[in-house]
Amino acid sequence: MLKISNLHAAIESENKPILKGVNLEIGAGEIHAIMGPNGSGKSTLSYVLSGRDGYEVTDGSVDFSGEDLMEMEPEERAAAGLFLAFQYPVEIPGVQTMTFLRTALNEIRKARSEKEIDAVGFLKLVREKCKSLNISDEMMKRAVNVGFSGGEKKRNETLQMAVLEPKLAVLDETDSGLDIDALRVVADGVNALRSPNRSMLVITHYQRLLDYIVPDKVHVMANGRIVKSGGKELALELEEHGYAQYEAA
């Protein structure tokens, strides 16, 4: 599904290397977690994977279902089945969430030479997804993320994921800014989207999220590299002992 090999990346404007040889392989249907201290490169990895401007890949490669991910535009990556759930979802005044999401779905379908969905069919689809995720469809009428609470923004991300049905979802600090109730709603939503055809990469600072979204594998990232990998019990160990031993290394 996803194979990251020796990935090096730098912030373009500062010529500052952030990722210094990341290796990671995620199989179909697997959930992997990346944990690490602030500044370890976790979020940079999610941006580089999704194609955000401002990062330069200086070495290595990323293979996504047989395609060279780094050669693709952000919209092409989405069409290929990649989804990034943002740590800070962006507010877009004046664009209704419904319009935005239908445009996105239809652009992805167009890119895949699939039939576009009409307004009525889309409304039905969204209602179904909202119901299965236990999310109110009221937010579809509002401008994208404008005036949304932290919890609503993350629920909106989950709903988008449910509608766009990616092969790989990267969840960047999904737990940040959420209280325990909101976290549970979002985690339930994510769990509902688990499937043998969908892989997930959960990026988080805290172990807390992994109580709800239980990973198959946990990786520790420090100083731009993955320094340790293990099972879900590794998260508990990190919670207890902290990251200090890895940062020193």
């Binding site: 877009i92 004046g94 935005f100």
Partner: peptide
Amino acid sequence: FYLRSRGIPKARARALLVKS
């Protein structure tokens, strides 16, 4: 970038933002 990351091509994303 947010719009593009959801699959909306650059030109269409720009138009959507200007229109809004």
